[in-house]
Design a protein around this nucleic acid. Structure first.
Lengths: 202, 202
DNA sequence: GTCTATACCCTGATAGAC
DNA sequence: GTCTATCAGGGTATAGAC
């Protein structure tokens, strides 16, 4: 009689492998960026050889794109949940996002590094990040404009400019935090900034 | 009789070569970052072969360090001049720096990319940028604290936090600007931010 | 100071067996 | 689906002539 207990279908095996690969790839890209991360290292961390990995993702670039897609999926779910929970309140939404970011240094470094790399037009993720930044700013402009209409956000500065500043503060604090994690409390500093955006009594 | 007109001493030839090398290296590192910039390309742009370049700077890492040293020299001179000219007025100093940055996209991208790469402790410029950020923030803390004592800067937020925010806004705006140069006016947005720091009438 | 030639390693990707 | 073997290409750095 055949021993059957830790049996897996082909599809399951594939799913498990791919999950491990994406996870390892995310880590390696976080540490080294796209260009200097090595397929061999990613494969090793996923308990595979290089050709084993390439069976699932035909090239390094494909792999990067899958990593980004997966992050998008996770992040957009999170953001949607936070927005609903806080009823589009910019103050709470922003703060909650920053607080959450402070628990995932790896992911923050991944984006920080890939954004910098991808400024060159030849970079495989160039268009991806251009769009991401554009859409991200647009989304904040909407939220801020809404807050201005409702009277919770100061209206003496345009929503465009406020969104750019908010975005800039988030990005900039991340760099400082990655440099000196123990000395920079992103969430605390961000809270102070958000208070600067509140409508002051006339 | 010997023809002597475009004659150069050895020392002069060396100086000219090195200047060209540093300039080319700065450009290549700006475009590709340290890890994926190629010595051959740098050499070519400086009208040299690779071994010709390596005669002056024994390794890629040495070359990077010289590029950074040179930028430091130039930047610290500039900053000193601006500080004196504006009598340590944080508003004018910051704005003038941002305005100047907006004319040198290459340099901004160089630092943006190297900072991101150098978060990994193994990166040759890791310590360099850690120090640079630390010192940079310290310098701004001093300037801001002075402004608070003089009564030009709001004192309801600590100088530490204000410096972190100022630094963050500068860095963050740079990324947005590199992404969409035509859509982001760093200086204009920065001016708005600086106004948020001014002391409000009681 | 600069060159040609070359050593040598690393890396992404392919071929083909199991 | 995963492996071993291997290739092709590119990258830093050195040796040694001029």
């Amino acid at each position: 009689m055949k021993h059957t207990s830790p049996r897996r279908t082909q599809v399951e095996r594939t799913r498990v492998s791919r999950e491990k690969i994406i996870q390892s790839a995310t880590e390696e890209f976080s540490k080294k960026g796209f260009r200097s991360a090595k397929l061999a290292d990613i494969a090793k961390a996923a308990d595979l050889t290089e050709p084993g990995l390439l069976h699932h993702y035909p090239s390094k670039t494909h792999l990067l794109m899958e990593v980004l897609k997966e992050r998008d999926r996770i992040d957009s779910e999170r953001t949607k949940a936070v927005l609903q929970k806080n009823n589009n309140n910019i103050f709470e939404v922003g703060i909650e996002l920053v607080e959450h970011n402070q628990t995932t240094p790896g992911i923050i470094q991944l984006f920080n590094l890939l954004v910098a790399e991808s400024i060159s037009p030849e970079h495989p993720a160039h268009e991806y990040f251009k769009k991401r930044y554009h859409n991200g700013r647009e989304a904040w402009v909407q939220i801020i404009a809404q807050g201005q209409q409702e009277g919770s956000i100061r209206a003496d500065i345009s929503a465009d400019v406020l969104a750019a500043l908010l975005f800039a503060v988030m990005d900039g604090l991340q760099v400082q935090w990655l440099m000196e994690p123990e000395k920079v409390d992103m969430a605390q500093i961000f809270r102070v900034f958000v208070n600067l955006l509140k409508k002051t009594e006339a």
